[in-house]
Amino acid sequence: MPSPMLQRLKGFSYSLILLFVLGSFQKKEMDSTLSIQFRAYVHGVPLELNKKYQNPFGETFEITRFRFYAGKLAPVYTNANFKSKIPSHYHLIDFSDSATTRIELPVTAGIIYNGIQFQMGIDSADQNRGAQSGALDPAKGMFWTWNSGYINIKMEGNSPFSTQPAHIFEYHIGGYRNNYNTVWQIKLYSTNDQSFMISKEKKILIEIGMDLDYLFDGPTPIHIREIPSCMKPGELARKISENFIGTFTGLTISPNP
């Protein structure tokens, strides 16, 4: 009869071996990377902050801040029988910091994919985890304190059409409770139904195009003159979030130099 200490040690070494095996298995699984680049356009022109644009209703405006949360990003298998392993973390895409608009996603080489899936916004499970870090650090300024919850999309700017002080407009879009959920699951396929395979040598860049015209001219038309601000969860926030997902217009796939 081995002593309990010895038994425990044995268990420990088994778990070490198991960890080792799992570790090497996982390494094999995610053996390449896929680059994903978010690109925003207004009226076909690449977005630059603090530059004048016109929305589809002829309202001139300037964007000073534009950020949103995308999470659980993964490539979609062409073979529908396979399901991607979905990572659990989030990215804060911030157009004032170009490094954040590009994501290097670990993927498995040698598999054929034909799209990208991700979640727009923070879902209710992740809204209720208490103090978080990384992209979800409340110091990022994307957290409502009096009505706990993350702001999923923050767009701020100014427009002569806004009736707000200093002609600012502010869309802070969030909410995960009940019928005011602003979180959406998004699947995007390439514009010409292209599929792609990633190998270790041949890397791929996927660009996710966003056409911000649709933020205004979506299922619910948003005229800056009428709606210069939305700062809390509710029906309006839900509608704007629905417009927002319409801005994701498709994927462009190209070799990654």
Partner: peptide, 23 residues
């Protein structure tokens, strides 16, 4: 309105009428 005890202090900390701070 506050969904978790860990995030509760953010409300007074950042409220301009209370502790008026920035994280």
């Amino acid at each position: 309105g506050i969904n978790h005890i860990e995030v509760q202090p953010l409300a007074p900390l950042l409220d301009p009428h209370e502790m008026a701070e920035d994280l």
